[in-house]
C-alpha cells in the first residue's frame, strides 16, 4: 500500500479553494475566543460543549443535504418538510406497533423498522423532488417550494396537525445516548455523515460528477454523465439526510410534528453559502460547510450566555460575518485575479 506517495504525486482533482476554509477557520477561532474572553467561566464549561454538540447535528445534517443540491446548481427547500414527514411516519408506526410500557426486547426491533421506514420516506421524498427537477425540468427553487408544501401538507393531513408524542421511551433514550457520558449520539451521527459525504465528494467519482454537472449541465451531458440520474440521486441523498435529521429531532423532542424546525431552511441556506458553496453550482466543500455550522452554533450558544442580549443579535452577527467573508474574499482573491489578468 503506497497511499502516501500517490497522495503527493497525483495532481489535485479539486480546484484549490482552501483559502476560504482557512478564512472561515480564522473566523471560527475569533468567535470562539471572543466568547471565551467574555464569559470564560460559562463558555468553557464541558456542559456547554456538550450542549452545543447536541444542538447542531439536526440542522447541520440538513445543511449538508442542501449544500449538495446547491453544488448541482439547484436548491432543496423541502428538507424540513421531508424531515418532519419522515419522523411522523416513524412515530405513527411506533405508536401503532409498540404498546406503552413494552419491554425493550419488544420495542427495539420495531424501532429499527420505524427508523428504516423514515429513511425510506426520506429517500422517496428526495426522489420525487429530484424527478420534478431532472425529468420535468422545473427550476429547483420552485419544485422544492412545492414539495415542501406538499410534504408538510401530507404530514398535517395524517396527523391533523397534532404532535405525535408519548413514543416508546427507549427510542429517545437511544437517540440521546451519550458516549462516555459526554458525546451525544446525534453528534456522532453528524460526524459520520460529514465524513462520509465529505469523502464521497473528495475521494469518489460522485464528487467530480456533481461538480461537473453543477458547472455546466450541457457539457456534462455531452461528456456522458447521466445528468438525470445524478440529480435524482443528489436529491435522494438530501432527502435521506433530512430524514436522519428528522429522526434526531424526533429523539430530542420525543415526538414528531408537522412544523418542527420550520426556521431551519433559511438557516441551512445561509450556512451553505457561508461555507463556500457557490449558489450557481460547481463548487463547495463539506469542510467549509461544517465550519460554518460550528460558527453558527458557537455564536448562538455564546449569545445565550448573556441574559440581556437578545437572540436576535445572532442574526446581525451572522449576516455581518457572511458579508465580511464575501468582502475579504473579494479583496484578497480580486487582487490575485487582477495580477493574473492578461489581455
Amino acid at each position: 500500500m503506497s497511499d502516501n506517495s500517490t497522495a503527493t504525486a497525483a495532481p489535485r482533482i479539486a480546484v484549490p479553494r482552501d483559502r476560504n476554509i482557512l478564512r472561515l477557520s480564522i473566523f471560527l477561532a475569533a468567535v470562539f475566543l471572543l466568547m471565551t474572553a467574555l464569559r470564560p467561566s460559562i463558555f468553557l464549561m464541558p456542559s456547554n460543549f456538550n450542549s452545543m454538540m447536541r444542538q447542531f447535528p439536526e440542522y447541520g445534517i440538513m445543511a449538508i443535504g442542501i449544500s449538495l443540491t446547491m453544488i448541482t446548481g439547484g436548491m432543496d427547500l423541502a428538507v424540513v418538510g421531508t424531515a418532519n414527514l419522515s419522523a411522523i411516519i416513524a412515530a405513527k408506526f411506533l405508536l401503532a406497533e409498540v404498546p406503552r410500557g413494552a419491554p425493550p426486547e419488544q420495542a427495539l426491533p420495531m424501532i429499527i423498522v420505524a427508523v428504516l421506514l423514515a429513511l425510506i420516506c426520506g429517500l422517496a421524498c428526495g426522489a420525487f423532488s429530484g424527478f420534478l427537477i431532472a425529468r420535468m425540468r422545473i427550476p429547483a427553487i420552485l419544485a422544492t417550494l412545492g414539495t415542501q408544501q406538499l410534504f408538510t401538507g401530507i404530514a398535517i393531513v395524517i396527523t391533523n396537525g397534532r404532535p405525535q408524542s408519548r413514543l416508546p421511551l427507549l427510542y429517545s433514550q437511544i437517540g440521546n445516548t451519550e458516549l462516555w457520558d459526554f458525546i451525544p449520539l446525534p453528534f456522532v451521527i453528524f460526524c459520520a455523515v460529514a465524513i462520509i459525504i465529505g469523502l464521497a465528494l473528495s475521494k469518489t467519482r460522485f464528487g467530480p460528477k456533481l461538480y461537473m454537472l453543477g458547472t455546466n449541465a450541457k457539457a456534462a451531458r455531452f461528456a456522458g454523465l447521466n445528468n438525470e440520474g445524478i440529480l435524482v440521486r443528489t436529491y435522494m441523498i438530501s432527502g435521506f439526510l433530512s430524514s436522519i435529521a428528522g429522526l434526531i429531532m424526533m429523539a430530542r423532542a420525543n415526538s414528531a410534528k408537522a412544523d418542527y424546525g420550520a426556521s431551519y431552511t433559511m438557516q441551512c441556506i445561509l450556512i451553505a453559502v457561508l461555507g463556500g458553496v457557490d449558489p450557481n453550482g460547481g463548487f463547495g466543500k463539506i469542510g467549509g460547510v461544517t465550519i460554518a455550522i460550528l460558527i453558527l452554533q458557537v455564536l448562538s450558544s455564546g449569545l445565550n450566555m448573556f441574559e440581556n442580549v437578545s437572540n436576535f443579535y445572532r442574526d446581525v452577527i451572522w449576516g455581518g460575518v457572511l458579508i465580511i467573508v464575501l468582502v475579504i474574499n473579494l479583496v484578497v482573491d480580486g487582487k490575485a485575479r487582477r495580477n493574473g489578468a492578461r489581455a
Binding site: 495532481p11 489535485r12 479539486a14 480546484v15 461538480y211 458547472t215 455531452f222 460547481g282 463548487f283
Partner: peptide, 12 residues
C-alpha cells in the same frame, strides 16, 4: 458551452 467545464480543473 458544450465541451468544457471552464472553471473546473484540467484534470477533471
Amino acid at each position: 458551452t458544450e465541451g468544457l467545464f471552464l472553471p473546473q480543473s484540467i484534470v477533471r
